[in-house]
Write a protein that binds this DNA or RNA. Sequence first.
RNA 1: CGGGGUGUAGUGAAUCGGUAUCACGCUGCGUUCGGGACGCAGAGACACCGGGUUCAAUUCCCGGCACCCCGACCA
Length: 412
Amino acid sequence: MRYSKLFGKTIKDAPKDTVSINAQYLLRGSYIDQLMSGSYTLMPLGLRVIKKLEQIIREEINDTGAQEILMPLLHPKDIWNETGRWDSAKDVMYQFEKNEKEYALSFTHEEILLDLVRKHVSTYRDFPVKMYHFSTKFRNELRAKSGILRGREFLMKDLYSMHTSQEDLDEYYEKVAASYMKIFERVGLKALRVQAAGGVFTDNVTDEFQVFTEAGEDEIIYCPGGDFAQNVEIAQVKEGKECDLGHGPLQKAKSVEVGNIFRFGTSYSEKMNVSFTDNMGKKQFAYLGSYGIGLTRLMGTIVEVFHDEKGIVWPENVAPYQVQLVSIKYELDSIRQKTDELCEKLQKAGVEVLLDDRDVSVGQKFSDADLLGMPYRVVISEKTQDQIEVKKRNESDAKLMSTESLLSLLGK
RNA sequence: CGGGGUGUAGUGAAUCGGUAUCACGCUGCGUUCGGGACGCAGAGACACCGGGUUCAAUUCCCGGCACCCCGACCA
């Protein structure tokens, strides 16, 4: 991709009341654009990051045996009345009337999935059912905040599973938990599994996946040894208390919830009559689990965790491009030739390259490269001669090397 | 929804009663090019909206609205 053709330009100063780091850098780099409070457009660069996250999640979730679908975002009131959530979740739901019929915009999909399952599944032989989708969620947050971390409209991967027994649900629940840990590791984050309350979803204790950052709005109490972690909203213990296995005192930290998993048992199935015939020919209600990861929030969290005073430092797996190719004096035939040649070679090898072909000063190209945060900055200039200069975004020194060395550095 | 803050060009700022100034960005030409280069010439603003006071309002007063922050609530 040629930078000169990319929609969206970097800006020097973030809009003045932008406080949160993720909003500042994502806005300055033109990864996102704000439409209104809590509502953002994903610009080409931002969407590439989201697509990377989506693909990693898809691979891991597919690995648990789930299948991808896509459910509607416009829901009729009736279906929400079946569980009573039209009223109980009124505050978070966008509800409205059109042509004398009432609708809601999706804030979650349990009811929709349950309806789907009861129409298509009738025997224990069809279980377990595991389905997920990536889609927008609308939530009427009392206050949208922290840039992309808490919007009123955001992207989410939600997975639902239905089982013939609590044991089977528990087993899959743990499988998803493990899958989540893998996902967060692949996107570069250290996530901690934390016990928490279920909010409008359930009264049961649930598990959250939290990432440490000052930008977070949650607080967790945890044991540094890793055998205990609870959200302060349910924690019975205080920081400083010794943890049981002798790992030292419990600690408290701010964090962002990047994922959440729930076990509902049969409560929803009973309300919506989602049943199956067991192997004795008897009617049974299905056990439901629900598992979410907020993609846009995940992207914001990554920026909160991986940045420095100059800009974003994307982990390699989620960067919109692996390489930002900067050539000094691109207008010179010799330089342009070398640059274009290298660009093509890299792309042919499967490397994603953002070529800064603009006629601007070196300083500007370098500072934009720092702001945008691609993992590798590659420079071609009169100075580099037959070699190329490679600098990792998270390192300060540049190295001269051959194209082949760069390719092997990139694992190609 | 309570409390606080801010609204002037795409962005950041100045003006604080006499119809708007600067920097960056943008356009054209030229010179440049290893850390946001320079010269010349340009374009770009109903000063958030509505009302009031005044000969005159971006400026003062009232009422809205929007955005940001803190809180309550939440992925």
